[in-house]
């Protein structure tokens, strides 16, 4: 057993931190897109729109039922062979697409469960005051479902941040890809991957801190 090359590790930190913005960019854009898509699918699943429902269920089944890595390869290496509009897709776009579709499938089910958990009185009161279904969902039901779904959704966001590391398999030099390159140059694999592990861990911990504030905010109506 050899000693850790701490000096190398310390020197690697600023290099790798330079790639954090790209990782966060992919995760944030993916999360926002996935939230929108998942909310729409969840509302559809609650109201069961004929025909659309079959499509949404198939979508959720496929994107939950296949590995994220397989989906990324399908988008990046596969689709350009059959769809000409996809020919110029770059790795970052393919990653964001993959993360969005993959996680929206999971998130749709969490949001659907949260919507169904909102007390019946809330639906009836919205109807009784004469709200349209869109007003009822946007003003009353979804805000209350958000409170229930928030911890699970933050978990998916954490998973998504870590999932961006798969972009390196599409040739994107992001945090993981950059670490791989550095390690291949120095042969100090343990040190390099230890540093990148620490960077991911810290990012997630910062997020967990933000989560506590988010939950306090969402729970403000329920504090006595």
């Amino acid at each position: 057993m050899r000693a850790l090359d701490l000096e190398y590790m310390w020197g690697l930190v600023p290099v790798l931190l330079g790639y954090v913005p790209l990782t966060l960019f992919m995760a944030l854009v993916g999360m926002v897109c996935a939230l929108v898509l998942a909310s729409l699918m969840a509302v559809e699943r609650v109201f069961r729109v004929p025909l659309l429902d079959i499509f949404v269920r198939l979508f959720i089944s496929f994107f939950r039922g296949t590995p994220l890595l397989v989906q990324l390869f399908l988008f990046y290496y596969g689709l350009p062979q059959v769809l000409s509009v996809m020919t110029n897709i770059n790795g970052v776009t393919a990653t964001i697409m993959g993360l969005t579709l993959h996680f929206s499938a999971y998130m749709a089910e969490s949001i659907r469960a949260a919507i169904l958990g909102v007390d019946r009185s809330q639906w009836e009161a919205s109807q009784a005051v004469g709200m349209t279904q869109v007003q009822m969902m946007s003003q009353i039901i979804l805000p209350q479902a958000a409170r229930v779904a928030a911890p699970t959704l933050v978990n998916y966001f954490i998973d998504m941040i870590k999932g961006t590391s798969l972009a390196f398999t599409l040739g994107v030099t992001e945090l993981m890809g950059a670490t791989q390159k550095e390690a291949a140059g120095s042969f100090l694999y343990f040190e390099a991957f230890l540093v990148v592990a620490a960077i991911y861990w810290i990012m997630v911990e910062v997020l967990a801190f933000a989560q506590r504030h988010l939950e306090t905010y969402l729970n403000k109506a329920h504090a006595r």
Partner: peptide, 20 residues
Amino acid sequence: LALRRRTSFVFQNYALFANK
């Protein structure tokens, strides 16, 4: 919807909007 907009309803269990 038109009918509901001409009536108002007071519920046994209050049914206030919990997030408002």
